[in-house]
Design a protein around this nucleic acid. Structure first.
Lengths: 338, 338
DNA sequence: TTGTACGCGTTATCAC
DNA sequence: GTGATAACGCGTACAA
């Protein structure tokens, strides 16, 4: 289509370019009559300001970059849904960076905001993608950003976090209260803060109960279903089997239950399983999953709101906001077997 | 940070702006020595071309807009993963438009590409967001785009589709072969082509088997788990209950199984359930779900490749590509009860 | 091979 | 209240 531009409108309405722009941006500054002439011309011709020109001139794109490891994980999908909803309501669009946990990919997407393809960054990874010169002020070297889920090792940026240790502590305490003493942990990648935090909570809870932590019962996973499958297979081979398995996310817990049932273990009579995240499917799995709920909608909203506030020029101190978890008890946990 | 621009590089390397640009875009056109001087200056200063300037000048953004109804549906999440992977490998980034099936939202995101915030459009909805003037050529009135999943009622654009009728036909035939004669259907929204196509296949299969279609056994859903729950509750209240339920996606099938088990029905002994999509969780639900598999990775890749080819100026006839489904038999279907 | 100059489409700063 | 005009940062035709 013969793209109609601001010049065409100016010609049709018999005004200058400036007046067209003003009519659209600051209508109050232009007289009723001329304003109407311009608006008529706009309506007639279907003119719409070109974003590339706008972006260059205003030095903003209206995009926010979201860097996240795995969009096929329902927790992350829910997170993005929430971010996108918030962003959209503020006039921002979401540029999606699904990195599959690849550091190169993370850097590549962060680059995009550094070269001005997006105004700000929502970063859900713990790996530092920046080359920081410690002698210069940090904020001069990184884009406007908010960090969440996996804590980044940087002081002075906005973060939205969950107290992983406390949440895990609570989950394990619940299992202890049910009489379990041999409790396994299927962790996330141990190079992440989330997995380390949860593992710390697990250890603390056991030790506070006077139990010794058996490293054989701790198996590293990667938050995918398959990891839950493999870890559980290993656990079942142990001479001293656990009576409960604490998986550091729901997907792995679903994998665990699957293996248990395939090997004729009853859940929770023979083995309790507890997850983390409270994804939608955890309700529909049999038995329904006991899990630690994260307020995913709130996390997404907070992240987007904080970022957008910064983009709008809010200059408060960078802060870390903690959101609260909740233990959701369903049917996959029960008293320890004799 | 004091942003370093192309002018700074030109000054440092003691060349003109043009030479800097050439060194970066068409290195062959610049002499070895000067090229090196420029590259050194670039490396030293950490200069990177600003995308807003680039975008305006080249009239392209490197973004593709993906408009999709619900990113929390695992099928769609897998789809986006595949799109993003393909796009990324071709140097494109994904602008995400999760519309939650809202027509306003669909229009709003399509607008974004029309005003030049993205170069092309991947459109996974059946609602026409354009105001088409039938007297003018279609391609002059719509952006470069590919349509998939829900077929759009427009001739002359690229599409990637599944033969829904055939796939559903096959699923129902399989149930018929197991001896089922009262087969329920939990559909998608009946204003979508996918649901209508699948329902047509369902009807055809029944009629070809000499059965009459009982409209009481057809319940409209919306592809969410809850719809499967509610539909199944209704079906169980019927005086003449079905012995099998064909859900038009896996999420609703998962909801159906949940209700059945809660009411002490055994699946598949008392009631068979079959889904559609073959999402990851269908393997891990108990019993594992029999379902019609869509090649989601292929769909995403094809969509992205077709679009990018167009963006690169390929001028072949617009075409509709059909991808093939596959019936995946697991444990949620069995012989009809006596 | 390199430099000059223009334009991409818009907004903002001046004058008038 | 409105109109020229200068940026925004870059790529490229043209001239040198």
């Amino acid at each position: 289509m013969a793209k109609v531009g601001i010049k065409d409108i100016a010609r049709i309405a018999n005004v200058s370019l400036a007046t067209v722009s003003r009519t659209l941006r600051t209508p109050d500054l232009v007289q009723e009559a001329t304003r109407q002439r311009v608006l008529d011309a706009v309506a007639e011709s279907g003119y719409r300001p070109n974003r590339m020109g706008m972006n260059l001139r205003t030095q903003r794109t209206g995009n926010i970059m979201v860097v996240i490891p795995d969009i096929t994980n329902p927790f992350n999908a829910d997170l993005i849904r929430s971010i996108e909803e918030t962003a959209s309501s503020h006039g921002y669009a979401v540029l999606l960076g699904d990195t599959q946990s690849s550091p190169e990919s993370e850097k590549q997407y962060v680059d995009l905001v550094e070269v001005g393809q997006a105004d700000g960054l929502l970063y859900f990874s713990g790996r530092n993608p920046f080359n920081i010169n410690p002698d210069k002020p940090l904020l001069d070297q990184i884009p406007t950003m908010v960090n969440s889920n996996e804590e980044l090792d940087l002081e002075g940026i906005d973060k939205v976090l969950l107290d992983n240790a406390k949440a895990a502590h609570e989950a394990v305490q619940y299992l202890l209260a049910l009489g379990h003493t041999r409790i396994a942990a299927v962790t996330g990648p141990m190079n992440t803060k989330s997995a380390n935090g949860r593992l710390q909570g697990y250890r603390d809870a056991l030790e506070q109960a006077g139990l010794i932590v058996d490293d054989k019962l701790i198996i590293e996973g990667d938050y995918h279903i398959d990891a839950g499958v493999e870890a559980t297979e290993k656990l079942l081979q142990l001479k001293q089997r656990p009576t409960a398995i604490f998986c550091f996310n729901d997907d792995m817990a679903i994998g665990a239950i699957n293996v248990l049932q395939a090997n004729d273990y009853r859940v929770p009579e023979d083995m309790s399983v507890i997850g983390f995240d409270n994804i939608l499917y955890s309700t529909y799995v049999r038995p329904a999953l006991t899990t630690v709920s994260q307020p995913v909608e709130e996390i997404g909203r907070l992240c987007a709101e904080k970022l957008i506030a910064r983009l709008r020029g809010v200059h408060s101190e960078p802060s870390t906001e903690y959101v609260s978890h909740q233990l959701v008890i369903r049917d996959s946990t029960g008293p320890a077997p004799e």
